[in-house]
């Protein structure tokens, strides 16, 4: 039995690191596009079909404001979440709050909203790509391979975002009240919590996080009015596979699905990566209809 198999010889360290980084980026990307949806779904049991359009709006905020001379970091990290969060609050007040407890109708109404936003943005900016922004960070060299430093930055942002959400939910008064409302809205309301306000804030925060994600991804993907469609399938399947817990669910869903997508992509090209992701999710839901966190880590956030 030889000590070093041929395969190991063929796989140099820099390639392993590059592929590993790609895999982690895939997972982080999935988590980033899903977390806003997970907040709204986990807290309010509302599946927001306009999620993809919130991502799209975040992208447009970044592109439009950088074209008007705003620093790209300010545009991505402050303006995008702020503006999309505000839009989220307006949407909640005008549309969502009439439909609480009617899951199917909420789903349909947010789908209407999604079409409305696509139509609105197309009317304003046109159907083709608005001027794009370049990724603000350069190239990272890993031995003979290169990777985008911006991808590394996105991985970092995803981790920081996850920790921030955990801290807000666990340590602040808002988080406490929100978790209480999530567990038993009537009881929270009887104890003097304005559940309507909590829902409004939650929806706004979910939208803000989504806007942030959309803004951060704008330099990578460019922006188009109907770019939301490319995100939502993956975001939904991640959140539903993950289950109702916001952080643990998103993390579990994106690690499993992102990991499988990465491996399948590596083995057979990107065409089948998404198919692998979908098949895994469908089989997973046959085994665990309530998602991963419906079966494991049930007490987690």
């Amino acid at each position: 039995m030889p000590h070093v198999t041929p395969q190991q010889k063929d796989l140099p360290l820099d390639l392993v690191v590059a592929i590993g980084l790609q895999l982690i980026y895939g997972i982080a990307h999935l988590a980033l596009i899903s977390i806003g949806l997970a907040i709204i779904f986990g807290m309010m049991r509302v599946i927001n079909l306009a999620h993809g359009e919130f991502l799209m709006l975040g992208g447009y905020v970044v592109v439009v404001s950088t074209n008007n001379g705003v620093n790209i970091w300010v545009a991505m990290l402050i303006l995008a979440p702020l503006i999309v969060g505000l839009i989220g609050v307006i949407v909640e007040r005008l549309l969502i709050r009439w439909l609480y407890g009617r899951m199917v109708d909420t789903l349909l109404a947010t789908w209407g909203l999604s079409l409305l936003l696509i139509g609105l943005v197309t009317s304003i900016f046109g159907a083709s790509t608005a001027t794009t922004v370049a990724p603000p960070l350069g190239v990272l060299r890993i031995g003979a391979y290169s990777s985008s430093a911006y991808e590394l930055f996105l991985i970092g942002v995803t981790i920081v975002l996850g920790i921030a959400i955990w801290l807000v939910l666990k340590l602040t008064k808002l988080g406490l009240v929100a978790r209480g409302t999530m567990q038993n809205a009537e009881m929270a309301s009887a104890l003097g919590v304005s559940t309507s306000r909590i829902y409004m804030i939650t929806f706004g925060l979910g939208a803000a996080v989504t806007g942030l994600a959309g803004g951060l991804l704008a330099p990578v993907t460019g922006v188009l009015p109907n770019i939301g469609a490319t995100y939502i399938a993956k975001a939904f399947i991640t959140v539903i596979s993950g289950g109702a817990s916001i952080l643990a669910g998103t993390a579990a869903g994106s690690v499993l699905l992102g990991g499988i997508q990465g491996v399948v992509t590596f083995l057979s090209g990107p065409t089948f990566g998404e198919v692998g992701l979908l098949l895994t999710a469908i089989v997973l839901l046959r085994l665990m209809p309530r998602g991963i966190t419906g079966r494991f880590f049930r007490k987690s956030l």
Partner: peptide, 27 residues
């Protein structure tokens, strides 16, 4: 089979069927 025998409820069913469609689209 996977959806009904997995007892996937209404809303999830909508989202899963939509996802199948969008994956076919990108494929």
């Amino acid at each position: 089979y996977f959806m009904f025998y997995g007892r996937v409820s209404d809303v999830y069913l909508g989202v899963i069927t939509l996802t199948v469609t969008l994956i076919l689209y990108s494929l």
